[in-house]
């Protein structure tokens, strides 16, 4: 088992946003963490990856994530989030190379025999090999997100965690990013865990899903089993599936014309 979470409770300011959550994750899986706003999705992901203090257990291959050194943790778990500062105008290559930070050894963290190859591979995978020397400020929003995706690819983790990675992106970029991650996941020994708002994306790309309802786990299992029409209706307080279908029907009439 790659990640095992048992009875995890966590939150901000003494109030638990997540209560007694349990789930696990194996290599090859893509676990989608779903639920309405304020259900505790980000809190759960942050706690399970050791960013936020919590009660309960979260173990990565049997090791308590709270006891792991930051660099040791970063060699196994990479996080792609949208809260990244771009105050300073780094080049694409500099940002991607930062993904190798935890792998560098030695006094000034300069020795990393695999680094160059990993950086080149990551840049190639996201299709930015020719923008290597470009500055971030010269790129589009979608390209910037791909740069940070290349950074986590270069980090070469076993578990990739995504905290609402495509929220602010156009639909084209969303598909691009999710396809890239899906391809990455299919190599042996890799898994993905992500927070997503869009249930269509969750169902389309997730192998497994975890549905949160006000801090508690309402369902966890294979995506098709966990995200049923009844459960979604219960957790979201409306017939979500019916609404999604209705939305899609708008296009049927316009197709005929």
């Amino acid at each position: 088992m790659m990640l095992t979470v048992r009875e995890l409770s966590a939150g901000y300011g003494g109030q638990d946003a997540v209560r007694k959550a349990s789930f696990s994750l194996e290599a090859g899986q893509w676990l989608m963490i779903c639920g309405p706003n304020g259900a505790g999705k980000s809190t759960l992901v942050k706690a399970a990856t050791g960013t936020l203090p919590f009660q309960g257990t979260a173990e990565l291959y049997g090791q308590d994530v709270r006891r792991m050194q930051p660099a040791a943790l970063a060699r196994r778990v990479a996080v792609l989030s949208q809260r990244v500062s771009t105050e300073y105008d780094f080049t694409v290559e500099q940002v991607v190379a930062l993904g190798r930070y935890a792998h560098r050894k030695g006094f000034l963290r300069s020795a990393d025999p695999e680094g160059e190859a990993q950086i080149a591979r990551a840049l190639g995978a996201v299709g930015l090999a020719d923008k290597r020397a470009a500055r971030l400020s010269a790129l589009s929003g979608g390209e910037v997100q791909r740069v940070f995706l290349a950074q986590v690819f270069a980090q070469d983790p076993e578990l990739l965690v995504l905290d609402e990675p495509v929220n602010h992106l156009d639909v084209t970029y969303q598909k691009q990013i999710f396809d890239l991650i899906d391809r990455w996941r299919q190599a042996p020994g890799r898994a993905v865990m992500s927070v997503v708002h869009d249930l269509n994306l969750a169902r389309r790309y997730g192998t497994h899903a975890l549905l949160l309802d006000r801090g508690r786990v309402a369902a966890w299992g294979e995506a098709g089993v966990a995200l049923t029409r009844e459960r979604l209706a219960e957790v979201y307080g409306m017939d979500v599936l019916g609404w999604l279908r209705e939305l899609l029907r708008c296009w049927e009439t316009s197709d005929k014309k």
């Binding site: 960013t51 660099a71 300073y88 930062l98």
Partner: peptide
């Protein structure tokens, strides 16, 4: 000696932690 770590900090403290920096 902290040049590399400060590069990670420049992307945000949370990001630096994810990259393996002892914040």
């Amino acid at each position: 000696a902290l040049g590399g770590a400060l590069n990670a900090f420049a992307l945000g403290e949370e990001q630096a932690r994810h990259l393996g920096v002892s914040v």
